[in-house]
Design a protein around this nucleic acid. Sequence first.
DNA 1: AATCATATCGCACAGCCGTGCAATTGCCCG
DNA 2: CGGGCAATTGCACGGCTGTGCGATATGATT
Lengths: 346, 346
Amino acid sequence: MRDGPVSDGKTPKKERMRFVSAEQVAQLAGVSRSAVSRTFTPGASVAPATREKVLRAAQELGYHVNDLARGVLANQSRLVGIVATKPEIGFRAHLAAALAKFLIQRGSIPILINTGQTEDELLAAQKMLIGHRAEAIIILSGSPPASFFELAQRNGQPLVVIGRSEPDADRVRAGNSEASRKAATVFFEAGRRRLAVAGSNTGTPSIIERESAFLSTAEGLGAEVFIGRGADSDYESGIAAGRALFSNSVRPDAVYCANDQIAFGLMDYVRQEVKLRIPEDVAIIGFDDVPEASWLSYQLTTFRQDPLVMAMRAVELMERRLGNPDLPPGYERVIPEFVIRQSFRP
Amino acid sequence: MRDGPVSDGKTPKKERMRFVSAEQVAQLAGVSRSAVSRTFTPGASVAPATREKVLRAAQELGYHVNDLARGVLANQSRLVGIVATKPEIGFRAHLAAALAKFLIQRGSIPILINTGQTEDELLAAQKMLIGHRAEAIIILSGSPPASFFELAQRNGQPLVVIGRSEPDADRVRAGNSEASRKAATVFFEAGRRRLAVAGSNTGTPSIIERESAFLSTAEGLGAEVFIGRGADSDYESGIAAGRALFSNSVRPDAVYCANDQIAFGLMDYVRQEVKLRIPEDVAIIGFDDVPEASWLSYQLTTFRQDPLVMAMRAVELMERRLGNPDLPPGYERVIPEFVIRQSFRP
DNA sequence: AATCATATCGCACAGCCGTGCAATTGCCCG
DNA sequence: CGGGCAATTGCACGGCTGTGCGATATGATT
């Protein structure tokens, strides 16, 4: 339909058949195709001489086993889906990268599903993952509908959820509540009495948990509490939260931010627009410890979530379930480390 | 070998056979497997009634076509590799995310190869991509050896390179030289005479190109030139470059940073350690325009590379080549937009 | 030297799918 | 009511691979 005349009839749709097959290697090596297959199957029985011939021929032709066909046979593909919205931002970016690295190390193929929050997009992504017989799915964010879990379950695809409390799936979570309680406590013990939390209106479960644990602890301690929220949980939301928290005459003297991105926005707003000093006038604590937190402009006291550790745990959970699909859901809790920098020193 | 006794002999390794096959759907619908296949093949001839029966059965069983087997048949897999080192950082993170999004939109499966710089890792990654019959490979960074290109060529895998001048492959590049010349020119025209570039000792081709174009232009204008380099091209390297550039008595009054990350490090160092004002004492221009560049703490004047545009171009080049493998290498040049903020106003 | 055990090899099948081809059905019109 | 045509359908093949099983070749042993 493009421009060329009708194809020559010899190779109607072999156009793209550039990959070498085991048959061709067998022919060149003068052995049967089985011998080729066995050469590339660990533990199979091949004579050293045959193996040598095959390897030589394979080398010459540039052969590599077709993992697709292998997957069809074994009904398994070594593909693992990483599902995330905005995988380029903040902690999620580090998590996704760490997952990709670990998955590759164990011989899996990480496929990055960058999807919006809409249900349709998520289900379309799932269709792809089922169609390609993905071995497992790791979800970094978003709130998949129940049908998502159901469909994965039905197709025997292990599901690992990071940062969300889905009771029917394997999950990895940070100790959000402990950390948030600690944040409120150290603020209070340092003499701060007007405690604020900067969160999000469309928060993930993690964000919500951090907000509420901080708030209840702060109230329990008898502090005055403030809430500022932005539309999302990024830098702009931090600015919005700052605007909400510091536009009244009575202002908080300590702000716990539900993640570092929010903290950066809030710090910038507070310093540049409200002209307050950090930590003298306002103390700040964040969450995640992304690299920017240690930048000289921020020097943010925060709770470290190590993306390497969380990714490792997620992959371990996945492997565990692949080994035994009938296990009860696993739960890995990673306790964040309190990292003290300039924005608040207890 | 693990722990269980010998398997029961009935289902030796069907353990994971949870996915539904077309055969089962055919059986339930009371038609032949061909009818099922045709139902899911656009443009095939199926009676509406049959189609309906098949769809109903498929829905009930939760069937989805096995794209692996389909790929084996067509010798094509819809998998596309995205190869990057440190895909979590800076502009690359945005590029990778944009690529993933566009690839999914066109029905491809983006696989994220997070690899180190070593040749072994790269070649191992390539093995995976060949083994899974990846349809194409997009390279974001790193300097693959010649054998990488050769092997991809040999297997008919289109290769798109972003930000590097590999003459034998399709490539997308920013107008590094134009932008860098412009940076030197606007500095000079604003009266700055001691012009510095902050780059990297292990720079990518883009970084190197920006450095040298700026330097030659600055020299040509008759300015005094300085060079500061860090080990990498990230925030810490910016600090290192700052240390190198501002430890002597004669200091630059304008610094062009090879990317935004370097600029952030340098700005922080200059302001916090050397106690200079930006832009009064030192003007700064960066490159990339990542979101952090517009943060209040930086307000960085920079050259915008739009990751969406570059990703789109890369995918277009890929599609073009898939349509016609024998085309000469394509070259898409994306001209960066000069974004003026506080760190320097011409 | 004959026999036995063992390691290898090739055949054929299974695991998915798309599709050409021939056979069947159904329909329309004369 | 019969014939011709088009639409549909099922069969069988092809595209890759791993692997059980019987058939060899090979070496060792008596």
